[in-house]
Nucleic acid binder design. Structure first.
Lengths: 230, 230
DNA sequence: TCGTATATTTGATATTTATCAATCGAATCC
DNA sequence: GGATTCGATTGATAAATATCAAATATACGA
């Protein structure tokens, strides 16, 4: 682990309130591993052996059925993933794949399950994380069912902006092909959607997003103020 | 509460392992209320005041945006709902509405949050429930993104069959209008889908479902064995 | 820097799904 | 029992989205 990283990981909501002793045990048993881009970390259906914490890089969680596949979420650094599979000791529901070179802290699932029982702060943090993850998927499902494709794009851009502190200019993460899959549409339709949004207050050029008229974009996209996470 | 109901509610996974003392406090502060059909219990955006446990009846959880609305899940008796909002002390994400006359146990949210901290068994049960709820929504999102409407209907019927112990004949719950919304399609397309499935091993007549050729229905619907809940 | 592979965009068309309109059918109310 | 109401079905059409096929752009390696 690089200097400065352990304190940083310790500040994750999941680990921040733990007792020092349990945190030491957790770090001692975990290891940080580097993965190349485009590598599948695990497949849906496999037993959950490790809680993953993305320290650096970008990871996609996806699902497949009968030859078709779709991207479900994008994990950014300093977030853990697949906590639900780890705590329930059930198989992974999603396949994880690195998008860029990534460093990932692997925490043995068995240890997490044990520590949850011993450390009340960790237990509460797990509850909070699961509840937030749950809400994120409720939101994603509602988004897909109630909005059509161009509106979903608009909302996605507004959400990204909010996560960057309300910035009007920012970069998209990952390839557009993958963004299209995340938003539940083809790359062709994502592209056309970007075109249509030029008239609604955002310009997309390459991976650069510029919100030129936020009020207009909001009027077009109908965001739900109370349920956007973060 | 009717005789025999309290023991029954106590056997819910959520409460089963709690210490007797905490369970007494919980029941003492809760109350069972009867609601007529078609009544909105709470709206998305409201603060979560009570954990709800459906004792009898049928409840729909739905979401709305910009005039459009959709059904997200159907709650059947002896399940709790909106645990995520209660434990995080955040607003409800979904609107709840009774479909039939329903009896619901209302547990003050503040008390649930307090007891979670004191009773390790309850805490673990909350983690399990949240993780299961999370997985259910991952599954719903995947279903919607990867399958087209008639396949979704086929899978829904297979899942209902599994929940009834693999029965080939059973009744659909709720109105078809609501089932269509749950499955992310219009009532017209649900109806046409039922028609198409007659050639794929299921006959639907009114609310009566008869699976006549399960192998064929499975071949058509491509269920994911490892992730159907229950 | 050029050439090649790959992603993105654009256009034409096909498929899926929604909408609108009408009819059918089952439950309910006098 | 018969009228009425509302949900479900069916048919015709429209809208949204996907697919297929180029054409352009972009990134990357020799």
């Amino acid at each position: 682990m690089r200097p400065g990283e352990r304190p940083e990981i310790s500040r994750l909501p999941l680990f921040a309130e733990m007792r020092e002793e349990e945190r030491d045990r957790l770090f001692a048993a975990s290891f940080l591993q580097v993965f190349p881009p485009e590598l599948t970390l695990f497949e849906a259906g496999q037993q959950a052996d490790f809680l993953h914490v993305l320290v650096d890089g970008l990871v996609e969680l996806k699902a497949a059925n009968h030859g078709r596949e779709t991207s479900l979420t994008l994990v950014e650094p300093l977030h853990s993933f697949i906590l639900a599979a780890v705590v329930t000791d059930m198989p992974y529901l999603m396949t994880a794949r690195t998008l860029s070179a990534s460093r990932i802290l692997l925490v043995p699932a068995e240890l997490v399950r044990g520590l949850i029982r011993q450390d009340k702060a960790l237990m509460m943090a797990v509850i909070r994380e699961l509840a937030n993850g749950y809400r994120e998927f409720v939101r994603a499902l509602t988004d897909l069912k109630l909005r059509q494709s161009t509106e979903r794009i608009g909302n996605h851009l507004l959400l990204q902006s909010r996560r960057r502190g309300g910035a009007d200019n920012f970069q998209l993460k990952g390839e557009k092909k993958m963004l299209a899959s995340l938003l539940g549409m083809t790359p062709e339709n994502l592209s056309r959607g970007f075109g249509a949004l030029a008239a609604e207050g955002v310009i997309i050029s390459g991976s650069q997003v510029s919100i030129t008229d936020r009020a207009r974009l909001e009027a077009f996209s109908h965001p739900d103020p109370f349920y956007d996470p973060l």
